[in-house]
Design a protein around this nucleic acid. Structure first.
Lengths: 142, 142
DNA sequence: CTTTGTGCAAACGATTTGCAGGATG
DNA sequence: CATCCTGCAAATCGTTTGCACAAAG
């Protein structure tokens, strides 16, 4: 699901966000990587060659993007807040060795029977976190 | 699954932990409540009447208990670390309105078919997070 | 030209650490 | 009585905020 610059600009505008170079850069960065980076990861990536965004701006951009539902937070590790431009329902795999996180498409897991849940709750959705060891770490373990 | 003082002492010893009043209190507190408290919640609860533990000690007790697998962290909210003395596999429900968290027994959800997952991963387990609105919040919404 | 975003530095809250004295096994 | 734990205060880390200036629409 590659997006061109113009698409990104339109997406941001459509959600009522002003398009600034910094905000654009944060969202584009998140769209083009799949490693669920932290705010710091994004900042480092953007400023790799030349400084383009400040820390405060990355944080506020993430917040703005989150508010209009273009970005979501992913919480799978103690005290670590990661971000994801994939806001469609999906599941996650987390490697307990290297801490990497991968997406699991919604269709890859069978639908879950929620009928036995307490009727006291109005259920709106669910998400599965699978844990184990990723391929890289299995190889290294040998 | 109520535990008496003597049981708790034995449990701690069995895991190689020295039994101090503070550590005992942290674990006992966590065993007797089901609201998945934060470190601060526990501290406040313990010091409600008279000061019994310091902040640093609550944190270090939680860490020690976690290392011997008597306590686990529960991460369902942005930037909030909660603790749970239920270390058996189980799922969670989170109310998006009040933020409360409830346990879902393992048997309440159907087993999930993991066969379609990438074979690159060595899967060790999974956990489901269900979200929606709890009964209290549904009533208030009317 | 009005509104909103940026960057800096200071403030903040939760957690961690160093260390001296105290309790545990 | 050696080892490990506690409490305090200071340090640290990620995140947020206040404010003057700059850019977007």
């Amino acid at each position: 699901m590659q997006q061109h610059s113009e698409d990104i600009v339109q997406t941001l505008k459509a959600r009522g966000l002003r398009v600034t170079p910094q905000r654009f850069a944060v969202y584009a960065n998140l769209l083009h990587r799949y490693d669920h980076p932290t705010a710091e990861d994004i900042l480092n990536d953007l400023n790799q060659d030349a400084p383009t965004s400040s820390q405060a701006t990355v944080y506020s951009s993430l917040q703005a993007l989150r508010e209009v539902n273009l970005v979501r937070e992913v919480l799978l590790e103690e005290g670590v807040r990661r971000y994801d431009a994939n806001v469609e329902p999906h599941h996650h795999f987390r490697c307990k060795t290297c801490g990497s996180i991968a997406d699991i498409p919604w269709e890859s897991l069978s639908h879950i029977d929620l009928s036995r849940l307490s009727s006291r709750w109005k259920v709106e959705g669910y998400e599965v976190t699978v844990h184990g060891v990723c391929d890289c770490c299995q190889i290294e373990a040998d």
